[in-house]
C-alpha cells in the first residue's frame, strides 16, 4: 500500500470530504494561502477556492463560534486552531455554544463541526500543553486523538461526517510519521480502540504521541519476557471501555500513558473506569500512570526528561506493576 505522512493523510481526508460534500469547508489562521503551518490544508485553496478555504483573522473564539453557527444551519465546518494552547480562547464557544447546541434544541438542530488542533509536544511553554481532558469533561463533545497516518485520515473523515462536535487533536511529533494509507476515502469509527501490540502480562493504554512510546517500551520489554498489550483508544469520547476492561481482565495489570498532566488527566478516568468494572477483581497490582508530573512543558531540552513521559518511564512503570506477582 502507498505510504503517506500523518499531515498528508489529514490533508487527503479534508480534500476527499470537500470533494464529496460541498457543505464541508475549512477555516482558520494561515490555512488557505499558506496551506497551514504544518501543511495539513495544503492545496485546498487552489482546489476549492476562498469561499470554502477561509483564512481568518486571529479570532479563535470568533471563528469557533462562527463554525457553530454555520454547523447549526447546515454546513460542515472544519476549524483549525493552530496550537492547542490557543484553544483556551475559544473555550466558551466550544463548551457552551457547540457542546450544548443539540441538547437545548432537543435534537431539532445540531452542530456537526470539527475543531482540529495540535500539540507541539516540545514547543514552548505556551504551545505544548495537552489539554484533552478538559474536553472529555464536557457533555456533548467528542474527542479524537489519532496516533498514526492511517487513523489520522480515517478518523478525520469520521469526525467530519459525525453529527456532533468533535475536538480533533493532532500532534507535531506525529506529522512526519509515515504509514500506509489507502487512497480511497475510508472511515475509522469513533469509539473503537486498536491493539498495536498484544500481550498477556500488562495492559498499557496510550494515545496520540504516546502510542509510539508505548510500542517501543513493549518491544524492549518483550526481550525481558514481559508481554505488553498496547491499547490505543484512538478516541477518548467515545471511549472503548470494553476493550480496555477485557484486556485488564486478561493481564491483571494496567499502565496508562499520556503526555498531559497526571493530575486530573484522562488517565485518572481510565483508571477509575477499570476499578469500577469487572476488571477490578482481576487486578494484580496498583494501576500506574505515566504522565507529566504537573509542570508546564519547558522550552529547554535539558528540562524535558522529567516533564515529558518517555520509553524509560513506561518500562519503569511496567516493571513496577510486574513486581506484584
Amino acid at each position: 500500500m502507498r505510504t503517506l505522512r500523518y499531515n498528508q493523510a489529514l490533508c487527503e481526508a479534508l480534500r476527499q470530504e470537500m470533494d464529496r460534500d460541498e457543505r464541508v469547508f475549512v477555516l482558520g489562521e494561515d490555512i488557505a494561502r499558506h496551506g497551514g503551518v504544518y501543511r495539513v490544508t495544503e492545496g485546498l485553496l487552489e482546489r476549492f477556492g476562498p469561499e470554502r478555504v477561509i483564512d481568518t483573522p486571529i479570532s479563535e473564539s470568533g471563528i469557533v463560534g462562527l463554525a457553530v453557527g454555520a454547523a447549526l444551519l447546515g454546513m460542515r465546518p472544519v476549524v483549525e486552531i493552530q496550537f492547542m494552547d490557543l484553544i483556551t480562547i475559544a473555550m466558551d464557544q466550544i463548551v457552551n455554544s457547540a457542546a450544548k447546541a443539540r441538547f437545548v434544541h432537543d435534537g431539532a438542530l445540531h452542530a456537526p463541526l470539527v475543531v482540529r488542533t495540535m500539540n507541539l509536544g516540545k514547543g514552548t511553554v505556551y504551545s505544548s500543553q495537552e489539554l484533552e481532558a478538559w474536553f472529555t469533561h464536557v457533555p456533548g463533545l467528542k474527542v479524537v486523538m489519532p496516533s498514526d497516518p492511517y487513523d489520522a485520515k480515517g478518523l478525520l473523515i469520521s469526525a467530519i461526517r459525525d453529527p456532533d462536535p468533535v475536538i480533533f487533536i493532532e500532534h507535531k511529533a506525529l506529522y512526519r510519521i509515515e504509514g500506509e494509507v489507502e487512497e480511497e476515502a475510508y472511515t475509522v469509527p469513533l469509539g473503537q480502540a486498536k491493539l498495536p501490540r498484544e500481550g498477556d502480562d500488562v495492559t498499557v493504554v496510550a494515545w496520540s504521541s504516546m502510542v509510539g512510546v508505548a510500542e517501543a517500551a513493549a518491544d524492549s520489554l518483550a526481550d525481558e519476557g514481559i508481554g505488553v498489550e498496547v491499547i490505543d483508544p484512538r478516541t477518548l469520547v467515545p471511549f472503548d471501555r470494553e476493550r480496555v476492561v477485557a484486556s485488564v481482565c486478561k493481564t491483571g495489570r494496567l499502565v496508562i500513558v499520556h503526555q498531559a498532566v497526571r493530575r486530573g488527566g484522562f488517565g485518572a478516568e481510565v483508571a477509575a473506569a477499570v476499578t469500577e468494572s469487572e476488571a477490578f477483581g482481576y487486578l494484580m497490582a496498583p494501576i500506574r500512570r505515566v504522565a507529566n508530573p504537573g509542570v508546564p512543558v519547558p522550552k529547554s531540552g535539558a528540562l524535558h526528561p522529567p516533564a515529558l513521559p518517555g520509553e524509560a518511564d513506561v518500562i519503569g512503570a511496567v516493571r513496577d506493576v510486574m513486581a506484584y506477582g
Binding site: L66, A70, L72, D92
Partner: peptide, 19 residues
C-alpha cells in the same frame, strides 16, 4: 453567555450565504 451568540450568528449568516 452574554455576547456568546454574536459569532454564532455570523456563522449562521455565512451558512445561509454559502447555501
Amino acid at each position: 453567555i452574554v455576547g456568546g451568540s454574536i459569532p454564532v450568528a455570523v456563522g449562521g449568516a455565512l451558512a445561509l450565504k454559502m447555501r
